[in-house]
Simulated assay, not measured.
Amino acid sequence: MSDQHHNPYQPYDPYGQQQQDPYGSSYDYAPYPQQHQHQQHQQPVAWPEQDSSQHDSATQTWQTQTWDTTTWQQPLVPDSYASAPMPAHQEPVYEPVPQPAPAPVVVAAAAEPALAERPMTAAEKARAEGRPQIVSPGLQPALLTTVLAVLLAAAAPLGRPALAVPVVLLQAVTAAGWFRLNGMWPARQGIALAFLGGVAADIGLLATDAGQAPKVVLGTLGVWVLLVVVLQLRSHASPDERLYGLTAAAASAALAVLAAGHLAADHRAVVTGALGVAAAVLARALPLPSVASPVVALIAAAGAGVAGGSLTGLGASAALLGLAAGACALVGLRVASYDYPSRFVHMTAGVALPLALAAPVVYVLGRALA
């Protein structure tokens, strides 16, 4: 036996040689080989610190969760970690999805006291409800129409020159009211031209016999329509605006000329017709139901015609004249009430149109009944 001590960590070789592997290299065993192998594959564990940018990219970080009052929060991952390639053995770390901020609550500002407290007009209420914007002139224009009708009735027995004074006033208000009713204001040239047409018709009627009244009225109307066309052709407005101005000016001149029919009518018919118009507009202004108001107005006009016939000697047939004049007055009020008119429209067109539209009827029925 050999005197050498056997190394317990070296394989025993009875021939005193080292163990050879098949490939010709010798090997021996180091102490604790399994522990050494385990230490080579173990990764160090690092807990997250305040500055996460100091961590090595190869060091595995364990994310911790902290409890908030509403949500779980996780430490944010730097951009360098997100762009760097992740090792195969490391699990991905997801960034928390930012929660959107709550939308601010917008409180509508309160309306101004002046606008909030102001009551809606009848036209604004009709527009909000989708109804036609029809506003009747009311009692004050009806009173002015009654005053003008009384002036006509009082001046008719005095002769045609005296009757011309309230007729000229009627023509001026008619010309201005029609242009304002069509939304054309100021339209001084058109108003002046229409008014001068009415004055020309008055002069022609005063200068001729009453039997020539239709020729005078139609001749004046033809000449003034031609003047209106020439005036609109000189305008530099667009074609649509010129056409609209032409129709408004022609209609205003026609109404002013037709209002001169009171001068050509019989004075008894003028009195009866004026009373019928006054009664109709006053009854229409009363606070009655919309269905009953026109009926009451026509009945009042017929009664006023009977009263006028008894005063002038026309008899009971004057009721028809008063009824027809009252119907023309209602048409004039309806025209002056259409499509959101202003107060100026009520005080001009609402006053003049009832008497102006009744002039041709007074002339025709007056000659038939007389």
Results as ranks from 00 to 15, higher is better:
H41M: 13
A108E: 13
A114P: 00
P78T: 06
Q74C: 01
A128E: 11
P104Q: 09
K125N: 11
V135E: 01
E91W: 00
Q60N: 00
T71V: 14
Q74L: 11
P85V: 09
P44R: 06
V107H: 10
W62F: 03
P48K: 02
T69S: 15
E129V: 10
Q73I: 06
A101H: 01
Q42W: 06
T69A: 15
D68I: 05
P85R: 11
W47R: 08
A58Q: 13
S57R: 05
E117I: 11
I134T: 02
V45D: 08
P78S: 08
E117H: 06
Y94C: 00
E117D: 14
H36M: 15
E129S: 13
E112N: 10
D51E: 05
M86N: 08
Q90E: 04
S53P: 01
V105S: 08
P85W: 07
Q40A: 15
S57K: 07
P113L: 14
R118H: 02
Q37F: 14
S83R: 15
V45F: 06
V135N: 01
Q37Y: 14
Q40G: 12
H55E: 07
H89A: 13
Q99E: 14
Q133M: 05
E95L: 11
A114Y: 05
Y94K: 07
P48M: 04
P98E: 11
A126V: 01
I134W: 03
D56Y: 01
H89T: 10
A84Y: 04
A123D: 05
P104K: 05
T69I: 12
Q60I: 04
E129R: 12
T71S: 14
Y94P: 00
T121L: 00
A103H: 12
V107R: 08
R131N: 11
P92N: 00
P78I: 04
W67H: 12
P44E: 06
A123V: 04
V106N: 07
H89Q: 13
A109D: 08
Q90I: 08
A84R: 08
A101W: 02
A46Q: 11
P100W: 03
A128G: 04
S136F: 03
H41R: 14
H38N: 15
W47L: 11
T64A: 11
A110G: 13
I134R: 02
W67K: 11
M86A: 10
V97A: 14
A103I: 12
V106Y: 06
A108Q: 15
S53D: 09
E117K: 06
A110D: 10
A82S: 11
H38A: 15
P100C: 10
Q65P: 05
T66F: 10
Y81K: 08
P100R: 06
A108W: 05
V93R: 04
A84E: 10
T64P: 04
R127M: 02
P75M: 04
